[in-house]
């Protein structure tokens, strides 16, 4: 993401108005999602977003080691974003790079406000994100898979986040930047948000944009994120719908049967509601802080657009 060329040698948009990979300006790259693909993890997911291929594994809530990191009032969320040595065309050196550390951190901050960490004091929730093949917008795709893996692990969340990086190429605003567009385009803006709540949890910017352009880009990313979010929901439900189908069950009939069959679960649950109530309040306050943290560049523009969008 370094060295933006304002002078374009290679056109990113052709005469027909199509991009290097044949997409229109407001089109997403093809996305494929899988859930529960790792048997040994508590939750897992896989994404192919353009040429990005990323696996996410979630472990926990589990015992926290080393113990001195434990927080007595909430769980510790640890996010580890790593790129495989073969994920880019020039072999990536295997040691964790500065970039990987940064992305791990911003992704942690992007996921944290969505979780009810207060439910698991002293414990740890570990998220491992492994990039097998990298394309543009890998941090956004990582947020999308990580959210899925967390949901698959059964960790209580306020909502699913999804990511999309839109930007400016050849003077035009384009959705979901790929690798070349990201590198030689004029600007790109990775956004991670929870579309149902309209909350942005990650916002970064590389390049120069006017306020109007940024607002337009945000609008466009939000649009893309909504589409990705629909796919996320569908793939989570798929996992269980598949088993229902195998048995040849009609969901409506089954509802009645189950309703009559499982009252003992309700009894188990009846004691807990108090605890959940307490937890929602303190975490809410925290969220606002977190929203402002991830964005580092262009603070002035950021604040304005954030208030517009939320």
């Amino acid at each position: 993401m370094s060295g933006k060329n304002t002078e374009v040698e290679q056109p990113l948009i052709d005469a027909k108005g199509l991009r290097t990979d044949g997409r229109k300006l407001d089109e997403l790259r093809p996305i494929r999602l899988e859930v529960g693909n790792l048997s040994r993890a508590d939750g897992s997911a896989y994404i192919e977003h353009g040429r990005n291929k990323i696996v996410a594994a979630v472990y926990g809530p589990r015992e926290l080691h080393p113990r001195h990191l434990a927080q007595s009032d909430q769980a510790l969320l640890r996010v580890n974003y790593r790129m495989a040595t073969f994920s880019v065309s020039d072999r990536k050196r295997p040691a964790p790079s500065r970039r990987e550390h940064e992305i791990s951190m911003v992704l942690r901050q992007a996921l944290e406000p969505m979780l009810f960490l207060k439910m698991y004091p002293r414990a740890a929730i570990d998220v491992f994100i492994q990039v097998l093949e990298a394309d543009g917008g890998s941090r956004c795709a990582s947020a999308t898979v990580a959210a899925l893996a967390l949901a698959d692990a059964g960790i209580p969340m306020r909502g699913l986040v999804a990511g999309c990086a839109s930007g400016k190429i050849d003077g035009k605003i384009a959705m979901d930047m790929n690798d070349i567009e990201d590198k030689i385009g004029e600007a790109d803006v990775p956004v991670v948000m929870c579309p149902e709540r309209g909350e942005i949890t990650l916002l970064q910017m590389d390049g120069k944009l006017t306020q109007k352009e940024l607002a337009k880009i945000l609008q466009m990313s939000e649009d893309g994120i909504h589409r990705i979010h629909e796919m996320q929901k569908a793939v989570l439900l798929e996992k269980y719908a598949q088993i229902r189908k195998e048995i040849g069950e009609v969901p409506e009939e089954e509802a009645e049967v189950l309703a009559a069959q499982k009252p003992e679960i309700e009894k188990d649950e009846a004691e807990k509601p108090k605890a959940t109530k307490k937890r929602t309040k303190p975490v809410k306050a925290e969220k606002k802080e977190d929203e402002t943290k991830p964005a580092k560049k262009e603070k002035k523009t950021k604040k304005k657009t954030e208030s517009e969008s939320s």
């Binding site: 009810f116 949901a151 209580p156 969340m157 306020r158 909502g159 699913l160 929870c194 149902e196 709540r197 996320q232 929901k233 989570l236 439900l237 269980y240 719908a241 089954e254 509802a255 189950l258 309703a259 649950e269 009846a270 807990k272 509601p273 959940t276 109530k277 929602t280």
Partner: peptide, 22 residues
């Protein structure tokens, strides 16, 4: 008995939440 995903809107108005909901 519907299967729901995190963040899904379940009800509006005068309802209470139990476990697994907020």
């Amino acid at each position: 008995q519907d299967i729901v995903v995190p963040g899904q809107l379940l009800a509006e108005g005068d309802y209470r939440h139990g476990d697994g909901a907020f």
